[in-house]
Amino acid sequence: MGGKCPHRKVKKRRLSHKTDRRARFLIKGDDMVYDELNKPEEERKTLPVDEDLPGMGQHYCLHCDRFFANVAVRDDHFKTKKHRRRVKQMMGDAPHTQLDAELAAGMGMPDNGPKLMSM
């Protein structure tokens, strides 16, 4: 994601750290990916055609939040160690949330009142 680029044509120009910093905000958090994976099949969004993304945004890896140029590249990605490690991680426990933090601090479950609780 941004930052270092080993095959630069113009050596003089400095690498942009700003794009790197920006790109960090675009990465999906672990908990977002986890939620997405645990959704039922029907609720998942179909991939819209986006010409800015690689392969028009049609070849997507849910676990790693990455787009690929074509099916072959994506299938190659599925075989990589990085992907398999990621799948294993996502199969495990749910990621840490604010609720977990509060429970660990010795708080009870949130009390939302009778109206909200019946829902």
């Binding site: 509060e102 010795g106 708080m107 009870g108 479950m109 949130p110 009390d111 939302n112 009142g113 909200l116």
Partner: peptide, 11 residues
């Protein structure tokens, strides 16, 4: 049971 007292009360 002492953990039941402190909680987020959204009402």
């Amino acid at each position: 049971s002492t953990f039941e007292f402190e909680r987020k009360r959204n009402r």
